[in-house]
């Protein structure tokens, strides 16, 4: 109950959430964060459901953050990931929260980072973050997971191209779901060829697994790979590097956000409308104005 309310406060940028997060922060860092991303319809929710069940068999508690896009027009959203996870609703060791992207600049990543910390401090062993792998903000969240699982399916045609452009670099584990369909082996081959082309791969070569999540096939192997990657991150020191990068990005984004609010407030005070008119009439140019604003700001 308290967890749920606090996440809402964080989503609404309620100052009480920041106060709580200050106190919670020292208790974070125990949970292992797994990002799950892939195109719509690739079976991420079903896969997440089965992963949670397998982790529960191993006596691990699991938090799930399921992110779906908000409508850019109305700000509303239909968050349907729970449909695939309804058997988990009554399990005390599982907490599922659906979040809309709410569209705005970095808003999603801020709220989801807060939600992750809240679940982490609450003591969940694993936190799974499920997002559609399209769009920068979704990729940002997934990028900050300890282990990122990229899900695809056979028969999407140009989808491999999309993966190549966007999220090929961030996958620690690749899953070809719905692998009972024709073409699964070809997707595996294409993925492995693309991975081999990746330079500076480091010591971890991302495994490619075939699953049929709806029939629970390949799930044990996936959990084993996640744990293998977890061990690798720990033994190689990579975990600390990743987490340092994550907190650095998060702090930077929060500072940017606060500063941009300040800038907007200041501009509004500074007779901004008139200045804009002058710029449009070419009596001023944008670049001088930018220099002046920054100079004033840094004073």
């Amino acid at each position: 109950m308290a967890i749920a309310r606090l996440i809402t406060k964080a989503e609404n940028e309620d100052p009480e959430a920041t106060i709580a997060l200050r106190q919670l922060y020292p208790k974070t860092g125990r949970a292992f964060l797994v990002g799950i991303t892939g195109p719509p319809g690739s079976g991420k929710s079903t896969l997440t459901d089965k992963l949670v069940k397998e982790l529960r068999k191993r006596n691990k508690t699991v938090g799930v953050i399921a992110v779906d896009p908000s409508s850019p027009f109305t700000g509303g959203a239909i968050l349907g990931d729970r449909i695939r996870m309804s058997d988990l609703a009554l399990d005390e060791g599982v907490f599922i929260r659906s979040m809309g992207t709410r569209g705005s600049l970095g808003g999603l990543s801020q709220a989801s980072h807060a939600a992750i910390k809240i679940l982490d401090a609450a003591g969940f062993d694993y936190i799974l973050i499920e997002t559609v792998g399209v769009g920068q903000s979704e990729i940002d969240i997934v990028k900050t997971a300890d282990t990122t699982v990229v899900v695809t399916v056979p028969g999407l045609g140009d989808d491999i191209q999309a993966i190549k452009a966007g999220i090929m670099e961030i996958g620690d584990i690749f899953v070809v779901n719905k692998a009972d369909r024709d073409g699964a082996d070809r997707v595996v081959i294409e993925l492995s060829q693309m991975l081999e082309l990746n330079q500076n791969m480091g010591e971890w070569f991302p495994p490619i697994l075939k699953t049929v999540a709806s029939r629970n096939e390949g799930i044990i192997q996936l959990v084993e790979k996640i744990d293998a990657h977890k061990d690798f991150l720990n033994s190689s020191g990579e975990l600390i590097i990743r987490r340092k990068e994550r907190i650095s990005n998060e702090i930077f984004n929060l500072i940017l956000k606060r500063v941009s609010v300040e800038i907007m407030r200041k501009l509004a005070e500074d007779n901004w409308e008139n200045e804009l008119a002058e710029i449009l009439e070419k009596r001023k140019n944008p670049y001088d104005v930018i220099d002046r604003v920054i100079k004033e700001l840094l004073q």
Partner: peptide
């Protein structure tokens, strides 16, 4: 509801009251 700007959590068919209440609480 979505078009009215609400965030809608849809849990699917054949839910027990217990499941619905648990979801309502977690989703706040």
């Amino acid at each position: 509801f979505r078009d009215a700007g609400f965030e809608v959590i849809y849990t699917g068919l054949r839910q027990t009251p217990e499941q619905i209440v648990a979801a309502a609480i977690q989703e706040d």
